[in-house]
């Protein structure tokens, strides 16, 4: 609706403007909250609220992972093993979890990698009782992800992640 204001013909609407200014303030608050959420880790790739672990510390298997990851972005998972006496560690990761993941690297490099029915089994040499295996990966899908990691013939740990678009 066009309104004449003073001597100038201009489509000005102060009532609408006040609503717009109010909406902008709300919007800025949301953007600020989004940035804070990102700092806290709720948008993935690090942050105190994203970092999680499954399994007890000191137990044979403890998994450190990120609750929130992003499709197409790098993510790291650390598997902490306690093997006494040290030797070879055989662990597995659920195959469905790795279906939508590109594994960039596993360090230390496994001696063998075997694909079984529903899991992928890795064998690594453990030179000390406490070994950490670092898996660098890239998720290729978004949504809720369920995964399992276990020691062959031993403890199993379950974890859940949310992969963001």
């Amino acid at each position: 609706m066009s309104r004449k204001t003073r001597s100038i013909d201009i489509n000005e609407d102060l009532a609408f403007q006040r609503k717009e200014w109010f909406a902008q303030r709300i919007g800025i608050a949301f953007v600020g909250a989004f940035v804070i959420a990102a700092l806290l880790g709720l948008t993935g790739v690090g942050g105190p609220l994203s970092h999680a672990s499954a399994g007890e510390e000191g137990s044979p298997l403890n998994v450190e992972y990120e609750r929130f990851v992003r499709r197409g972005a790098k993510a790291t998972m650390k598997l902490h093993f306690h093997s006494d006496p040290p030797g070879f560690i055989q662990f597995w990761v659920s195959a469905p979890y790795f279906e939508d993941v590109i594994v960039d690297s596993v360090a230390p490099v496994p001696q063998t990698v075997t694909v079984e029915d529903s899991r992928i089994v890795y064998t690594i040499r453990a030179g000390s009782p406490d070994v950490t295996v670092t898996v660098e990966m890239e998720h290729q899908t978004f949504g809720r992800l369920e995964g399992e990691v276990g020691i062959v013939g031993g403890a199993t740990v379950h974890f859940t992640q949310l992969s963001l678009f």
Binding site: T5, I8, N11, E12, D13, F16, E20
Partner: peptide, 14 residues
């Protein structure tokens, strides 16, 4: 929809 235009592009202000 002119109202949509206002929401998307705003209006001039003196």
């Amino acid at each position: 929809m002119p109202k949509l235009g206002r929401v998307m592009e705003s209006l001039p202000v003196v």
